[in-house]
Design a protein around this nucleic acid. Structure first.
Lengths: 196, 196
DNA sequence: TGCGTTTCTTATCATAGGTCAATGCCAGCT
DNA sequence: AGCTGGCATTGACCTATGATAAGAAACGCA
């Protein structure tokens, strides 16, 4: 069950099988149904998720009832609610499963505890956090500077397989536009490609 | 010179004066003139900045020559270019000084090296990175869901003192709108407050 | 003190994208 | 097979914000 997670780790850091078995005591795998709610806004989350299979998302709901997708987490991605994780504060966002999903559940103390015995886990954590930051900076830059069409093209390039798995209104919600607008953008793109 | 930095650290982690003096060998303070360019897009950055006084910013320039501000860094804030820091990749963004600025220059190996002797520095790093992430998540949520006016009000609340120090076109650039739009928003807000 | 350079405002016009409503489509149920 | 409830598309219309241009005000430097 945890094999893919072990592979993921060993790909990134120098981790022996013995070290992994030390770690794996503290890990659990949990399954979620399609559309299952995993974390409510306002709840305090003590766990991060590493997706083994399926697809999670975190999102907010604004005052007009509209949904805004903060992050998709397909296979091999982490999804962690940072308010609860480190500061014991209630979550700003919701988390649920878009597809039936299996995920490794990582308690907030996991990194602290394991890095005592397996120091490289610290580096991994560090790398992941830094990666997450530069990823989000690029997204912010996109939202500041690009048109709907540019954002969509960028999305397709970045997540070719998500583009197929996720309903379009969710992609629109991630891009910060309405489903109708995305539909129009797609229409325009189709025309462009027929008449180049 | 490093006193404010020491105070900053000791406020957040359990750090003795002796430990700090071990650390401080590896730190340098550098001064920047107003408008001095600190990092160009494409360059590889090996240093993070902790602002002692003054104000830095990171930003991008799009294909039409427009500037988009990714981050402001006033006193007590960090500004770190993540591509260079951990992955030795060229920067996506520019960094310069909006005001005459003094900043602690922290080399990318600093955290690794110091945390050997002073383990709490690791926790600090971790907390900072997590904080940065949840901060950016909120910003993304804003950009996805809020109008120009809402974003501006939120900015004022979040950075009351920056609102005064920074020219409005930079605030507009941070909010993802034009200076003209911001001017309109401000006018509307003024009217609302006179006729409530 | 005065002059040039930024910055801010205002007005007008243009447009990307939002809203609303209708329609058609498809997948999952019973 | 026939319903049903999401999705996606389309069209007509609307609105917030962008573009452009010009003047006013503030700022920085000689």
């Amino acid at each position: 069950m945890l094999e893919p997670f072990k592979a993921y780790l060993q790909q990134r850091v120098d981790l022996t099988d013995e070290q992994f078995s030390l770690i794996s005591d503290k890990l659990k795998v949990k399954s979620f149904d399609k559309n299952e709610m995993i974390l409510m806004k306002g709840d305090v989350s003590s766990y991060g998720f590493f997706v083994l299979s399926g697809l999670l998302r975190s999102y907010s709901i604004d005052s007009k009832g509209k949904t805004h997708i903060i992050q998709f987490a397909p296979e091999q991605w982490w999804l962690t609610e940072r308010n609860g994780m480190l500061f014991n504060e209630p979550s700003d966002f919701f988390i649920d499963a878009i597809e039936p999903t299996k995920a490794v559940i990582v308690h907030k103390d996991f990194m602290n505890e394991t890095s005592k015995h397996v120091p490289c886990m610290n580096d991994l954590n560090n790398t992941m956090l830094n990666n997450s930051i530069r990823f989000m900076q690029k997204r912010i830059n996109m939202l500041l500077s690009a048109t709907a069409e540019e954002r969509y093209l960028n999305f397709i390039k970045l997540y070719p397989n998500l583009t197929l798995r996720v309903p379009q209104w969710m992609i629109a919600s991630y891009l910060g536009i309405t489903p109708e607008s995305l539909s129009r953008v797609r229409k325009d793109l189709a025309h462009k490609h027929f008449k180049p």
